[in-house]
Design a protein around this nucleic acid. Sequence first.
DNA 1: AATAAAAGTATACCTGGTGTAGTAAGTTAC
DNA 2: GTAACTTACTACACCAGGTATACTTTTATT
Lengths: 207, 207
Amino acid sequence: MAEGLGRRERKKQQTRRTLIETAARLFNERGYDATGVADVAEAADVTKRTFFLHFPTKEDVLLSDGPARVELALRVIDERAPQAPPREVLAEAIHAMIADTASRELPNGMAALRARLMVDSPAVQARVLRAVFTAQARIAEALRAAYPETLDRATAASVVGAAVGAVCAAAMASLQDGDAPEATSEAMRQAAAIALHAFDALGEESR
Amino acid sequence: MAEGLGRRERKKQQTRRTLIETAARLFNERGYDATGVADVAEAADVTKRTFFLHFPTKEDVLLSDGPARVELALRVIDERAPQAPPREVLAEAIHAMIADTASRELPNGMAALRARLMVDSPAVQARVLRAVFTAQARIAEALRAAYPETLDRATAASVVGAAVGAVCAAAMASLQDGDAPEATSEAMRQAAAIALHAFDALGEESR
DNA sequence: AATAAAAGTATACCTGGTGTAGTAAGTTAC
DNA sequence: GTAACTTACTACACCAGGTATACTTTTATT
């Protein structure tokens, strides 16, 4: 996406990629807490200050694909609503995010690393949860905005919260059981299916 | 609870209470980021080191009642399961937590302060979400353990994740709308009712 | 009264993160 | 082609959250 953006932009993206890869490698080798930002910068041959010009915190280097995934979900909602009913639109948005995670962050091992670091680093766990929470809020708002007559804020927040909460909890449980990637994404899909029954609680016209 | 525990323990609890009250007051007056741990310690007439002997991080001083609330939910599950069906047991546990929040942390303003700080301090938001996530995991495990034949880990994680996710999302939405405390707790109860329909997705014997 | 345990003190230190000013490379205009 | 403008990056000083260590003082035990 957007390739020919001049040498300056290309070098910037290169620095960014190098920082991400270097950080992932060092976190893997030495552990998260034992790897300082200074170490990552040193190994990537830039200064510590440059790291923070690319990522607001140490944890954010693990979340590079997050924003794109949220945009994906918002695009699905924008394209499918309000022709399709809320339940189907939300289902498709959630499934798009699950598929995106499986295709972009399983090959390079980023999802697995993040899941592992989440278990034994409070800071990583906190950052990931905050990203999920923010994404959830944006999706809920987009869904409400797509059906302004039939969905209020609290209801939209509830059904999206239920879906996202269920999917995340199932993913964590699966990963802690040591499941293979395919088993984990299947568990996420099943959790979504279960949570989407929250729509059964709503009136006919809100589903 | 447990009053006569000797002068030493009483003084320790007194120091702890003073730190909590002082921190809450200063956060209110000057804002969270503008108040350093050193300031809180100074105002409470102890050293910075003493603060960290009572609370592992600056954020934790806002979460003092959290653990007790989780224990409450676990006790409800322990007492009511497996006689009552999973759906009812989870509903009662959630309602107990909502009621406890409303009764213990609305009078002293702690809930309101925490909600406010959560909005404009990433660190507070992160810590609160992490606490919720941990609580959710413990409740899911307790529920699964109470019905070992009929609930697997992923399913338990899904329904609890749905319920907790919905309640939290609804609470945040309500608080950001500036609702009064009673309106917020009502929104939480409604969200729980909606999310508990996730049980409809399960087989007859798992509900 | 003597001893042990534990809360709190004093102080130095580490690391994540920011402010500021400057350099050098890349881009744009003449 | 060169001058002028941007901007990614550097260098360095600094702050706040959090930890390690060694010490003092109060409470509990016998």
